[in-house]
Write a protein that binds this DNA or RNA. Structure first.
Lengths: 108, 108
DNA sequence: CAGCTATATAGCTGTGTGGCAAAGTATGGC
DNA sequence: GCCATACTTTGCCACACAGCTATATAGCTG
């Protein structure tokens, strides 16, 4: 699954936000957060973490029985870059459009 | 459907990119593009346009029998902003983290 | 080693969403 | 007025995905 799909889910976005705000967290902490905010069970949260992992949005390392998750900036930067590029092109271009229409000479 | 879900689909992303690159387009043009790239039929493309419309990513106006679609920067800016915020927080903070760990004084 | 804690996996189910063909709604042209 | 054009809507099916419970795996702890 790609980054776009990964962050399409509010539960996963909430996990990402938690990691962005306060740094790394264990699977348990993230699961508990999801439980509070969305009322989901631990295995469901674990599944969401798997999706984020496979999209490269987070990485995990093993600390005894704990898995520590942290944010991986790459994919999110790609996402931000894509979205920004889409708007930078035509935002503030209304004038350019009008010039274009003028040069076309047809106002139906 | 929100912006995140709206751009989660590659067909819809392709439509957005087309509008970002070369400005407004008719439903027919966007449908044809989707047909070429993804092999989908016209009603399916129309459905995708509806999703983009309802997410506020595009707006449409009527020109005779044609519907002209254009990009609405707002939602995409929100998306870009969100994604950027998630990474700006901890990117380039590895040093900050190390400083934090130093000030904690515990290296287990 | 027994048992507790932490997390992942397996297997099942309901619902949302993407795909299609067919029908409906406007509008322009003959 | 009627047909063609340009879309959208409707109704259908299939499949992906989020949710759950139950179970497996792994590592501490007594």
């Amino acid at each position: 699954m790609d980054v776009f799909q990964a962050v399409a889910d509010p539960v996963r976005r909430s996990m990402v936000e938690r990691l962005a705000d306060r740094g790394e967290a264990t699977a348990g902490e993230l699961s508990e957060l999801a439980a509070e905010r969305f009322g989901i069970r631990q295995p469901t949260a674990s599944k969401h973490l798997k999706v984020l992992r496979e999209a490269g949005v987070v990485t995990s390392s093993v600390d005894a029985q704990r898995r520590v998750y942290r944010l991986e900036p790459g994919p999110l930067d790609d996402l931000a870059g894509w979205a920004a590029r889409q708007t930078r092109f035509w935002t503030g271009r209304l004038d350019a459009l009008e010039r274009h229409l003028d040069s076309e000479g047809d106002t139906p």
